Deep mutational scan, measured.
Amino acid sequence: SQQIATAKDKYEWLVSRIVKNHNENWLSVSRKMQASPEYQDYVYLEGTQKAKKLFLQHIHRLK
């Protein structure tokens, strides 16, 4: 749906803004993002596993 696509774009923007180093780990980054509406919306719509998967894809691109 359009809502999910929009939430994903915003979440990816948030991840790219916060995660600048491929050594970052999911636990510390997800804690930093918990207060962000972009993170909350995406997790609400798609779940934590998908959020983690996108985070890991971003990390992989930074290597």
Rank of each mutant, 00 (worst) to 15 (best):
S1W: 05
S1I: 09
Q2H: 08
Q2P: 07
Q3E: 12
Q3W: 10
I4R: 07
I4P: 06
I4W: 01
A5Q: 14
T6H: 11
A7T: 08
A7P: 06
D9L: 13
D9M: 15
D9A: 14
K10N: 09
K10H: 07
K10L: 02
K10R: 14
Y11T: 04
Y11N: 00
Y11K: 01
Y11A: 01
Y11H: 03
Y11L: 06
E12T: 11
E12G: 06
W13E: 15
W13V: 14
W13Y: 13
W13T: 15
L14R: 02
L14Q: 05
L14P: 02
S16Y: 07
R17I: 07
I18C: 07
I18W: 06
V19M: 03
V19A: 07
K20S: 08
K20L: 11
K20P: 04
N21I: 05
N21E: 06
H22G: 13
H22L: 09
N23I: 06
N23D: 13
N25Q: 13
N25I: 05
N25H: 08
W26C: 05
L27Y: 14
S28D: 14
S28H: 13
V29T: 09
V29E: 04
V29W: 10
S30E: 12
R31P: 05
K32E: 06
M33S: 01
Q34C: 12
Q34T: 08
A35G: 14
S36I: 12
S36E: 15
P37T: 13
Q40F: 03
Q40E: 06
Q40M: 09
Q40N: 11
D41Q: 14
D41F: 04
Y42C: 00
Y42H: 02
Y42W: 02
V43K: 02
Y44Q: 15
Y44A: 15
L45E: 07
L45V: 06
L45H: 07
L45R: 07
E46D: 01
E46I: 00
E46K: 05
E46W: 01
G47E: 02
T48N: 12
T48D: 09
Q49E: 15
Q49S: 11
K50S: 12
K50C: 08
K52A: 02
K53E: 15
K53P: 01
L54Y: 05
F55R: 02
L56N: 05
L56G: 02
Q57C: 05
Q57E: 15
H58K: 03
I59Y: 03
H60Y: 11
H60W: 07
L62K: 03
L62Y: 06
L62R: 04
K63Y: 02
K63T: 07
K63M: 02
K63P: 03
K63E: 08
